[in-house]
Design a protein around this nucleic acid. Sequence first.
DNA 1: TATGAATGAGGTTTCATTCAT
DNA 2: TATGAATGAAACCTCATTCAT
Lengths: 215, 215, 215, 215
Amino acid sequence: MRYAEDVAKAIKQRLTRQESRLETRTKLLESAAQLFARGGYEGASVDLIAESAGYSKGAFYSNFESKEAIFLELLDIHKRREIDALAALLAQDIPASELLSLIRSGESGRGSDFRIGLLSAEFQLQACRDKTFAKTYAKLHRTHRDTMAGLVVKLFAKLARTPPSAPKDLADIIMGLTTGLSLQETSVQGPLRKGFINEAILLVLGLDRVGEKRA
Amino acid sequence: MRYAEDVAKAIKQRLTRQESRLETRTKLLESAAQLFARGGYEGASVDLIAESAGYSKGAFYSNFESKEAIFLELLDIHKRREIDALAALLAQDIPASELLSLIRSGESGRGSDFRIGLLSAEFQLQACRDKTFAKTYAKLHRTHRDTMAGLVVKLFAKLARTPPSAPKDLADIIMGLTTGLSLQETSVQGPLRKGFINEAILLVLGLDRVGEKRA
Amino acid sequence: MRYAEDVAKAIKQRLTRQESRLETRTKLLESAAQLFARGGYEGASVDLIAESAGYSKGAFYSNFESKEAIFLELLDIHKRREIDALAALLAQDIPASELLSLIRSGESGRGSDFRIGLLSAEFQLQACRDKTFAKTYAKLHRTHRDTMAGLVVKLFAKLARTPPSAPKDLADIIMGLTTGLSLQETSVQGPLRKGFINEAILLVLGLDRVGEKRA
Amino acid sequence: MRYAEDVAKAIKQRLTRQESRLETRTKLLESAAQLFARGGYEGASVDLIAESAGYSKGAFYSNFESKEAIFLELLDIHKRREIDALAALLAQDIPASELLSLIRSGESGRGSDFRIGLLSAEFQLQACRDKTFAKTYAKLHRTHRDTMAGLVVKLFAKLARTPPSAPKDLADIIMGLTTGLSLQETSVQGPLRKGFINEAILLVLGLDRVGEKRA
DNA sequence: TATGAATGAGGTTTCATTCAT
DNA sequence: TATGAATGAAACCTCATTCAT
């Protein structure tokens, strides 16, 4: 019994520790995402990240090896999140019309409280400058692009149409468009309407009139 | 005679000075453009800009008020340059087919020895962060967008076709696409073919098959 | 019975605890000695010491009050060890010739797996800087020096010779020479032969030719 | 005349600049020497060095590439100074007796307002840990040692005596002794008399009684 | 106008130490 | 007793900017 108690306590303790550490990590990651998106890689200091997460600089370095590390981890998390969302969409058996409206109203690069489009641009900008970065980014980008291409193929199959260009190219274009327009959205801050990016994507795919015809 | 000589000399000197000042400014701007494109706003130090232009820090501050100032001036120059090019295109009476091939082979954001796409992204990223910046940028962007929209209208008129969306939106999309794909091109460094950006633009406009049909 | 058992268990446990504590202390001290010798006082972090001993930082602070404390304790241990060795030599009734050869082949500051010479220099350097340190060090040094002086007297008595200088001075010189040459040995890493330090000591004592004459 | 004036002014200006820069460098070097000697390599912060020289951190980095750089430069300067002093001694044609008294009263590692012995120990300690350091140090040490060995040879030739060991070994011993005893002198702070180090050197060389006999 | 020495705020990172578990 | 997450001071270094020359 005593032993059992000890074990239970130990497990509980370890869990609490793990949990608390995880919470710290999560908070730091969230702060970092926001600050990177707002001020860029150079614009967000470790000090600021830690402070805005409610911790000290030391806590940051106890959880991440370096500023670059948290940036890279953020990249990983957000790209993975996008990929997963797309994969989930692919996995379901959704009718074409619903797919279209999902896209039209979708979260393509917006929706979180920080602008993922900005982060993406920031990532790519860093990748232009840092070899390590570029490698990681390129790999992730390719995975993402391929998943996206798969979705494009599936979408056109359901619509019984032919894609206007190679699916991989279309995927690249969609991603570039998303980044580029997100950048515009935040910097020009004005005429860009909600849903504009999604409409632009449908335009590229030549699907901008598809929903309307039936309506 | 002496007086006349002195005056002549003074004038000459002043001209020479002005010229030399202009040369210094030009060289500094060029260096700055290259370095900002390569390393981002934070990546290019005033020292480096000055040195790589063949001057000292002092020369830099004799010609520009601050680092931000040269960045803003660069923004102005490059956006103006693009606008002028488009305006020139609009002014001429070019037949539709030629316009298309001009676009297809055009300089849309590439061709200079520094990547203007990167600079553009950098500009927009800064604009997200700095109010002064954002204002200047937004104004310039709007002018640029309108000129571009005019070109789109003219193009479709010549082709006797209807634009697939509002010309201003199309202009925004073209610009966003250019920035986004430029970013991809340099960071993913791989499958992006030369001319890909231009093809993407034609795709958005629904003009990707126009040239082919006749060929 | 139960009570007796419990007491026995408690005692055993206490012993075990004491033993385990001692083991922890010992391991930490050993790690610290190695790391201080390798990287200096500043070069060895508490984290590293603990980790390389197979414990955590917490264990370190459970056993030592501070980093300075373990350094001081190390100083104490090593100086005491040397002194004990010398005292043992003095206590025995060793013939002169044997004493000489013992010195010639001896462990004067080398032989342990970490360089005690380096540690010694490190100790003295710290002593120059820290008053607490300096006091402890000076006291220990004096004890050591006196013991060494005693050995010198005994040695010369056995050899029926007169020391070339005051025994305490000779002791100081021997100790300084040991430290200085150890430092050279590790930093210049070259021509310094094994046994060189011991030969140098005999040279100072004017005993360098003593063994040879008889051979 | 005008031209000549300008040139004169330019030269004067340049000299003033150079002079002022040199003065800064010198002051920084002096501060660094003192602080390194007092607190060791790690004990002297760049901030402290700069401040105690009356400058800002920035001034330090405008004059030295890094903390390591100034340390290495200090090493170079002081070793060179010692070597030069010895070389000067060698160059002159000084009678043996005078040489001896020069050594006895000499500046062997002391005399400057900072303890060169401590600096030397600090250098060697760093050299044990840093490869770059070790290389530079080893080279300098060898030069120094050889010069010292030359002096030893010359000295014994003048005295018509035979060195008690290989001159290079004697040189190593002299240098080690100097470092080791300097360390003792400052850390034990007490019984070490002025001139003790020099006497010890003469003892090693077997010349401790040479002056006395004649007296 | 141009130089470059100097400033000083601020950046990333390390680490001795504390303390809840 | 031992753990290790967190602290926060302090280190090295960078860089936009100023100013005497």
